[in-house]
Nucleic acid binder design. Sequence first.
DNA 1: AAAATAATGTTGACACCGGCAACATTATTT
DNA 2: AAATAATGTTGCCGGTGTCAACATTATTTT
Lengths: 206, 206
Amino acid sequence: MAKKQIKKSYHHGHLRDALINAALKLIEKKGVKGLTLREIAKHAKVSHSAPYRHFKDKADLLTAVAVEGFETLVKETHKRFETVSGDPLSRFRESGLAYIDFAIAHPSHFRVMFGLGENRQQTPPALKKASGESFRILLDSIMACQEKTYIKAGDPMELALCAWSIVHGFATLYIEGYIKKYDYEGNQRLKEMITDNLYLGLHIKP
Amino acid sequence: MAKKQIKKSYHHGHLRDALINAALKLIEKKGVKGLTLREIAKHAKVSHSAPYRHFKDKADLLTAVAVEGFETLVKETHKRFETVSGDPLSRFRESGLAYIDFAIAHPSHFRVMFGLGENRQQTPPALKKASGESFRILLDSIMACQEKTYIKAGDPMELALCAWSIVHGFATLYIEGYIKKYDYEGNQRLKEMITDNLYLGLHIKP
DNA sequence: AAAATAATGTTGACACCGGCAACATTATTT
DNA sequence: AAATAATGTTGCCGGTGTCAACATTATTTT
């Protein structure tokens, strides 16, 4: 509720969040490549050097944006769980579809979430945590499915990795333009086919 | 064979290729992000503006690098086909493993091959063609498998997309550091598990 | 063969970018 | 009230992509 302050003071008050939001807006509009620290600062109505009081450098800001992405992905996935039966298999399936839909809805944001690697020595802890929580959803639903023998036995970690791979691969190929021949309904079908093929691979009973 | 010329002339002779090679070397060493047009030119012993006689801009050069990547991927896949039985199922499997191994062996190059999308209006024709030839391998082996009823019936295009998705997703997640807990042998196992899970999804007979 | 033209490479400039240091202003602690 | 920390600004630096103007060489035309 400390949001509607009249901005008159020298200090901004919520600059860190404002910068992340500005970055998000600019990313959606102009993509990651054209994203500039100075333009972000300008949008937050602050000088070009101000961001350095809140972020070590540009990559650090982008890491925060990526974290934000994983967090909203988790939120949206949970929201979609409520629109579907409590059956663990339905949840498993829904988590994959939510992942793909998120990527398609926010391609640039999605790229930031995964396009930071770039010879990085190691993943920043905040990012590791956020992405881990997203992965956790997949892992949990797989284990729940295993308990009901919907999914074959085996290291759930590895099975989850397989599941993640297929939805991530599809999402990536889609937003990079390698899957285009199908209109929206066609893609809807494709998405389902992907999860179905995966299920066949992990299923016990058809 | 026109390669061993004494370089003394004002004109370079093979500058286009030289630039692509220089870019490849620099990409392997310093990653995509740190890649600079001026440094590429310097490595090719040419002024910072010379590349513009052969490429429209930096993105155009990177597109050429991406094309080169798909071409060598195709070559390496064919090479590996010779190390394996002529059975279409073995070839199908080998094409997936070759894809993953290529990405792991040349992560930066792989990123260039897929990291250009970035709100691109449409894929450049040369890139579309090169990537299409790579996809063609997958498509052909799937159709060959279908003829022998190794793989279930259905639009081979969609099945190939599923196969591509899973290996591409795994490769991407691996090089971005999201799959790290396993040493090399472990990953070998994982790679095989991925293709195996995929096969179970596409198989007719176990 | 000479001249005209095209292709290819160089130099120098421009605006912009990320990042840093030095300084200004405001919050917080002592 | 004074000292200190936090936060924001200004000005600068080297480096980058790109372009225009110019230089040199290759190719085509006459």
